[in-house]
Design a protein around this nucleic acid. Structure first.
Lengths: 118, 118
DNA sequence: CTTTACTGTAACAAATAATATTACAGTTGA
DNA sequence: TCAACTGTAATATTATTTGTTACAGTAAAG
């Protein structure tokens, strides 16, 4: 894992995005233990463990902010019989679906994905 | 299905949102054949078919605008070896995961979900 | 046939969120 | 001690979402 050290500028160039945004998201990935970084000259970021030990489910968990099905904008009217219960039922549905999704992603590693690049 | 006719105002009141937004989304659901509506006085919207014939996968398909895993902001640098291929590989991954999700949602009906409300 | 209560849209405004930029302190290698 | 990085904050810009107003069209009910 000592290999493959890249600067945020380099990564930003590849995905056409601002380097600071890259560093921000990298900061998040670091907190989730997926990457590590080296400061100073010739510094950069690298995977915290080998790619074949990183599951896509881990990445998904680190990266996503909300449920795959969405969860925002929900302050229903508590006076409404349906509105009063909807969040509870949606949450349980979302969780169930999300579990399926995680199981699926948990079967794939980053190395597999990276292997598709020729 | 002639039953359960509701106005956009009524629905908007339940979910605490603007009636026009409700009508917009309803318009989308109508185009997907999930609801029908009646104009004029005492008009409103109702399910186009019985709730036990509506799969959650159908609703998901009608409602979602992007993949569950996200798909936006992707004009990678074509000069980058990775950037050049990333969309293709992400798409195929997303599709695979999305299929799993659809299968899961395809096993549930709206009636089942509605049945949870007491 | 006129009033009333709706739908269906469009056009525009306001609020919110995503992205970009600038700036700079801290770290490390040369 | 300079150069090339990270890390982070503050701020600006842009895009998206949500809300509002407006109004034509439709159907029921008086």
């Amino acid at each position: 894992m000592g290999d493959e050290l890249h600067s945020s500028e380099w990564i930003a160039g590849s995905i056409n995005i601002n380097p600071v945004l890259v560093r921000k998201e990298l900061s998040n990935l670091r907190q989730h233990g997926l990457v590590e970084s080296k400061e100073g000259k010739n510094g950069g970021v690298y995977l915290a463990k080998p790619a074949n030990k990183i599951l896509l489910s881990e990445i998904y968990e680190a990266v996503r902010q909300e449920s795959a099905l969405g969860t925002k904008r929900t302050d229903p009217n508590p006076k409404c019989k349906v509105g009063k219960q909807i969040n509870k039922h949606l949450d349980s549905l979302y969780n169930e679906v999300e579990d399926t999704l995680m199981q699926k992603l948990g079967k794939k590693t980053l190395a597999e994905f990276a292997g598709k690049f020729t």
